[in-house]
């Protein structure tokens, strides 16, 4: 079964072990560390047992359509969480509620010790815009359709957030931005506009833009779904190299082999609830839920 689930080149090797040569980010470890070490990875959560992100009783309705019925989940620091499941099951909406691109209908979301929203007497109370903006800046999202700023070069896309939101001096942002582009293998394309980049290149710039925020958590919304098949591997390699740095990530993806290899925890989302949760082995090798069994059968075809 595990072989059948692993059609991609990232299959057999053990989890989280960087593969030299394949990985555009691992080519220069000292440079990578220099950026990583500036980041307060250790101070992410004072208590490592405390989850970085907690979602309780999340609900989301669009009009009369209930997309998310009731979702609870926790993301612990340094972990990689995958949300998998059938299309329309609500995975992306869960993700978009976490950073308030969608406002939940009900529920409680806590991020880095700060409550972003809670429900009291049936009414949702959301934190102030300033709090939400601060939270978003610490959990940037990578989108299915990249959503690069079309009028800015690759480098300008990456440095926009650090300069405008984090208030970094321009020279520092440029230096860091170029280093990030180098790590995603796109330094020589730093001055290219999005229209001049392939889908895979755009997505790697978008990942660099997210990492440039020095985030505590990165949200990935189907990062490879809009890519031509031959461009998928490069983007997955980039994401995996982030996992190798013990970054906290929540990933919505249809790449099951990738989920299996990278995930610490997998949630199967269907019909607006988490139908089953577990380690990749539990989910893929010993599914209990009927819908999950059916889903896994269907993706094996």
């Amino acid at each position: 079964m595990s072989n059948a689930l692993s059609p991609l080149p990232i299959s057999a090797s053990p989890k989280r072990k960087p593969e030299e040569g394949m990985d555009p980010m691992s080519s220069n470890k000292s440079a990578r560390l220099s950026i990583v070490s500036e980041k307060p990875q250790q101070s992410v959560a004072p208590n490592p047992a405390e989850p970085l992100l907690t979602v309780r009783g999340l609900q989301k309705r669009f009009g009369s359509h209930e997309v998310i019925k009731n979702i609870d989940l926790e993301v612990s620091p340094g972990s990689v969480t995958f949300l998998i499941g059938p299309s329309g099951g609500g995975k992306s909406t869960v993700l978009r509620c976490m950073n308030f691109l969608e406002t939940p209908s009900a529920g409680e979301i806590t991020f880095a010790g700060e409550r972003l929203c809670h429900t009291e007497k049936g009414r949702l109370h959301r934190a102030s815009d300033a709090v939400l903006r601060r939270a978003r800046a610490q959990m940037p999202m990578v989108f299915q359709h990249f959503n690069l700023f079309a009028h800015r070069t690759a480098l300008e896309n990456v440095i926009e957030g650090p300069i405008l939101v984090l208030g970094r001096p321009r020279e520092q942002a440029v230096a860091d931005g170029r280093e990030l582009l180098r790590r995603v293998g796109l330094l020589e394309r730093a001055d290219a506009y999005p229209a001049q980049l392939s889908g895979g290149q755009k997505q790697r710039v978008a990942i660099a833009r997210a990492v440039a925020m020095e985030p505590r958590l990165i949200l990935f919304d189907e990062p490879t779904s809009a890519l031509d098949p031959e461009l998928v591997a490069g983007v997955l390699d980039t994401i995996r190299s982030l996992a190798d740095e013990n970054r906290t990530m929540v990933v919505v993806s249809h790449e099951m082999a990738f989920a299996r290899r990278l995930a610490d925890r997998v949630h199967f989302v269907a019909d607006g609830v988490i139908a089953e949760s577990g380690s990749p082995d539990e989910i893929f090798d010993a599914p209990k839920n009927e819908r999950l069994k059916q889903f896994i059968r269907s993706i094996l075809h």
């Binding site: 691109l101 978003r136 800046a137 989108f143 359709h145 957030g161």
Partner: peptide
């Protein structure tokens, strides 16, 4: 122009005014 690029701006913590002015 709105839509995706606005989401992208929001997702890195930009304010609405910033997004309109810069993006």
């Amino acid at each position: 122009v709105e839509g995706g690029q606005k989401d992208a701006g929001l997702s890195i913590g930009m304010s609405r005014v910033m997004i309109y002015r810069r993006v």
